[in-house]
Simulated scan of single mutants.
Amino acid sequence: MSVHIQDSLARAYRAAGEAHDLDALLATLSPGVVFHSPLSDRARFAGHDQVGDLFTAVFSVLSGIRYHTDVGDDTTRMLGATARLGRQSLEEAALLRFDDDGLVAEITMWIRPLPALTALMAALGPVMARSTGRPGLPLLVSAAVKPLATLTRMGDRTLVPLLTRPRP
């Protein structure tokens, strides 16, 4: 497999993400693709159906996805991107591992800063909970994660500046 093929596939993955084009994104993924969440070691999505549901939810809450970095070789690529979740900006890094057919077999995602990560959790949690069909779960998830998002946003705005200002 050549790096040229991975360049083309990575370019297609990036274009699909920027366009919020789920079908084009799924075309870059192996049928057995595994997505490792930045939110929890316990959150793992496998196969086109689960990963497709996840990206449908992601595309419903994120805007302005723009990839700015793509480095790697014919087996592994690291992509860097920026996006917006409402007024909150975020950065993501996605590690893509390719299978023998040249498709994305594994995605591991990281997101920063912490307020963006917890805001994403608060936005995606109820959406993903609704897809389970379990009554009451979206409300429970929302009640559990929204305080965390609020606390990290407030801490970032009020405490972090106090810690990063020069001392007299």
Rank of each mutant, 00 (worst) to 15 (best):
M1T: 14
V3M: 09
V3W: 13
I5R: 15
D7G: 14
R11F: 02
R14C: 15
A15Y: 07
G17C: 11
G17A: 11
E18W: 01
A19Q: 11
D21H: 11
L22E: 12
L22R: 13
D23G: 11
A24N: 13
L25G: 04
L26S: 06
L26T: 07
A27D: 12
G32H: 09
G32I: 05
G32M: 04
V33Y: 04
V34C: 05
F35V: 00
F35N: 14
F35Y: 15
H36T: 01
P38M: 09
S40W: 00
S40H: 03
D41I: 13
R42Y: 07
R42L: 12
A43V: 06
V51P: 05
V51G: 08
D53E: 11
L54M: 05
L54G: 08
A57F: 13
A57W: 08
V58S: 10
G64E: 12
R66K: 14
R66D: 10
Y67S: 06
H68K: 14
H68V: 12
D73S: 10
D74A: 11
D74F: 01
T76D: 12
T76V: 07
G80E: 13
A81V: 00
A83H: 09
R87W: 12
Q88P: 04
Q88W: 13
L90K: 03
E91V: 05
E92D: 09
L95D: 09
L95W: 12
F98Y: 13
F98G: 12
D99N: 15
D100C: 06
D100S: 13
G102Y: 05
G102P: 05
L103F: 14
A105W: 03
M109Y: 10
M109S: 04
I111F: 08
I111W: 03
P113N: 08
L114D: 06
L114Y: 00
P115A: 07
T118F: 11
L120Q: 08
L120T: 07
M121S: 08
A123L: 10
G125L: 07
P126Y: 01
R130S: 07
G133W: 02
R134I: 09
R134E: 06
P135N: 02
V141I: 12
S142R: 11
A143Q: 00
A143D: 00
A144K: 15
V145D: 00
L148S: 07
A149F: 02
L151F: 14
R153Q: 08
P161M: 04
L162P: 00
